[in-house]
Each structure stands twice: as structure tokens, then as C-alpha cells.
Write a protein that binds this DNA or RNA. Sequence first.
DNA 1: CACATATATAAGTATATGCTTATATAATAA
DNA 2: TTATTATATAAGCATATACTTATATATGTG
Lengths: 89, 89
Amino acid sequence: MDIQFLEKQLKAVSDVNRLTLLSCLKSGETCVCDLVDVIGISQPAVSQQLKKLEEAGIVTARKVGTWKHYRIVEQQSPVIQAIIDQLPN
Amino acid sequence: MDIQFLEKQLKAVSDVNRLTLLSCLKSGETCVCDLVDVIGISQPAVSQQLKKLEEAGIVTARKVGTWKHYRIVEQQSPVIQAIIDQLPN
DNA sequence: CACATATATAAGTATATGCTTATATAATAA
DNA sequence: TTATTATATAAGCATATACTTATATATGTG
């Protein structure tokens, strides 16, 4: 893992809202609308944050009708895994 | 470890220059002037970055004459330790 | 003392970040 | 088709970040 990619992944998680999203996703696949209900920011803001996590390879999504279900990627780098482990369930 | 402190530590390491500084410090205590020689930013910039790492509890320093020797704190949180482990020596 | 060296702090600035509101897109239902 | 719901994208803006240069501080030397 080169240092540039490490930086990208770390930037993706160094934000309270994105850490909270990851914390929510620990309990399993969740659609955007449910995530919006949990954290106190707008729906577009949640979409934007999820996109950052997705671009860093930390979460992935599948579409189900109009819903989109996000989940944490199973195989993570040791660093990201350590972070996920620290988050409350 | 609460999520706010986790965020603070992650923000402190989510930058290529600070990761490079940590990478240098893996080989042991180093003074600011030697770190300046290694990474391509000015001396004040290095001091500012080291301050961020220090405020996050990741590095510490001791003064020796006019020099200041920075080093990585021994006991780290699992997350920060995982990051340090990933860095080249 | 004056001067040199190492480091820190201050001030300014360009870019990045993370929200907001408005709007676009996609799928579904009536 | 029109309307509704879920999500994404665009644009704008306020704040944060990370440099730079200039200057302050601290220590050591002649």
C-alpha cells in the first residue's frame, strides 16, 4: 500500500459524520434514507459522504428499486479494519 | 476512545507530509532540521505539522540545546499503531 | 555584548472541505 | 402519463487546511 492511497483512505475516515456512517453500517447493509434519519445532516450531504467512502474503497452499494443499500467492504486494509473495530456497534 | 478523539487522531495523520514525517521518525528520534532536509517543505511548515502530531498525542519532543528532538510516542492506540506499521522504515 | 543557529509563531493566501438549497435522475405507483 | 419516492449532482458559500514569508524566541559562541 503506497502512502498516497493510505492518505486517501485516512482522509475518507477522518470526519465525525463519515465515522458515524461507518458505525451505522457495522450493523449491516443500510439504505441512504435510514442513514439520513440517524445523522443530523441533509440527504445530499449523506450521499456526498458515502461517495467519499465508496471512492476510497471502504464501502460499496447495490441498488434495490429506488433504494440504494450501502455496506462496508468485507476485506479491508489493516488500518481501516482497526478503525472499524474501534467504532461502537 | 470516543469518536471525537479518533477523528482528531485521524485528521492528524491524513496528510502525506505528516505521514512522511512519521515514517522518518520510525527510525528513531530526529531533530526538526533533519526532517526539513528530508521533506520538501519549509522549516515553519515542518514545525506546524509536528505540532499537529504532538497535539494528537502521536509524537513527543525533548529539547537538547537549540535542537528539538521529536519521536513517536511508544504506546499508541491500535488505530495509530496500525498506521505506523504500514509506513516504510 | 553582538551574532549565528534551531525552532516556533504570526500573518497572509490559495485551495480543500463540508455543508446548504435547488435540481436532475431513476424507479415505482396510480 | 403524471405523481411520488429515493438518491445523486450542481452550485454557492463559510470554514478549515497547509503552505508561504517575515519575525520572534531561545540557546550557544566569539
